[in-house]
Design a protein around this nucleic acid. Sequence first.
RNA 1: GCCGUCGUAGCUCAGUUGGUUAGAGCGCCAGAUUGUGGCUCUGGAGGUCCUCCGUUCAAUUCGGAGCGACGGUACCA
Length: 505
Amino acid sequence: MADTSTQTPNPPKQKKAKKPLKIKARAPRGFVDKTAPTVRAEQGLIQAVTAIYGQHGFEPLETSAFEYADALGKFLPDDDRPNAGVFALQDDDEQWMALRYDHTAPLARYAAENWQHLAKPYRRYAAGPVWRNEKPGPGRFREFWQCDADIVGSDNPAADAEICLIARKGLTAAGLSDEQVSIKINNRKLLNATLDMAEVSDPTQKLIVLRALDKLDRLGLEGVTALLGDGRKDESGDFTTGAKLTPKQIETVLAFSTAGRETRADTLTALEGVVGGHAEGAAGLAELRAMDALFTALGHPPGAFVFDPGIVRGLEYYTGVVFEAELNIQVQDEKGRPVQFGAVGGGGRYDDLMTRFTGQPVPATGFSFGVSRLVSALQAAGQTIEAPAPLVMVLVLDAEHTDHSFLLAERVRQAGISTEVYVGTSGMKAQMKHADRRNAFAAVIVGEDERQDSTVTIKNLELGRQLAQRIDSREKWAEERPGQVTVPADDMVKTLQEMWDGNQA
RNA sequence: GCCGUCGUAGCUCAGUUGGUUAGAGCGCCAGAUUGUGGCUCUGGAGGUCCUCCGUUCAAUUCGGAGCGACGGUACCA
């Protein structure tokens, strides 16, 4: 029997001996590390928003990161391109699984699976990462957090209105002011009616029309008109093929999209004139009227909830009301140019999403925040990020007595102050430097002298930071020992607390 | 996906008209400093010059392809 295992494989090329390759330390494309300030801000935000959801009786639901690909809907990967759009892999039983790309599809799967156990209407919230296997861009990543609230099992416009209400409440709870938040609302039924009246029936053509209308705020009437017609050439010379509508069709479509007025009542009147004569249009208008009545009764300012026929949103699964949360914030970039914030969240009614599980439509409506985008919006709005908790550093001057430092640190922690014991191996100077860089407000120094006397030396690092700016000679610096005291070990916690309070004053 | 710019130390960047050992500033580590953050001085570590293929006696440098970053545009459940 031939044993091939002892044969040498092809000898490596006789090049100069290479050093072992070092791996480039970098996160995968489109994935980012979130450092402490961002994590703190995002966690604070999610806490504030989900508290609102909880007040409205929504329950948390965490579903798994992976779903079977067919449960995710029409974006399931095919064999040729198993990772188109989603991150997918094949399980042992050859089933395709994919990471969720939003929280809505998993909710539909969960609700269908547990339908008989759920009290309907079922309302839940979810916060967590979602993954999209697309080319990343500025402010766009392949992993990002969304925070959702949905109501399944009600086709009542009151459910849509409540979703809009908590979207707004969530944003204000996150720290935005009443004037900064605006929920813009449209209804896909009105769009369908418009397309029907304009005699646009080809599905592909419909899609192009909707995409064009979605760009109204960015490209303006002229650009959208071009996209509805033959097409448009952008600044880079790239040509986008248009929907090839006739001028009359374009007129019909744009008459709808530009029917927005100052108040909801005026907009409803204008829309009545455009699509009121169409059956589906009339149905959509009735839903908006019901929402309007609730908003008005609850006494929110007029700008809080706006009917805007220019809103299109996601193109595939929305069936009725759609909405977007927009921020009225004036921001400038480094070059002083005004920055337009896109929507920080959106949602709508998706009555058909569960059909593939249940065989019949189940009404559902929901909303989703982009967590990271909202955090950067808050920062732009001047919301300060929570400062990290105060920190004390306990030095270890003699490795044999590390336990002593650990015991002291435990006493400080019990008083509620975060405490780090130096666990490196460098000398005192490096430890002080470390304490400084960790932004500790105080260092606890325990050497042989302190141990024998049952004392500790506490140095006020914050004070030293201020003094350092005025001292330039080494001698003075060495003599200064700013805010340094030696106290009995039993007074350590009290001294630290007073030092912190004093520094805050 | 398409167009453009770029890729040299941890960071910001010089430089090599193709030739011995590729540099600076900042940062990092250590010493001067006895048990003290900053300043100053001294020393040290750290590089497949993005990768591969080609041209060449010789490529970090020239050519091609790829990958990556950034910007614009498209798509975005």
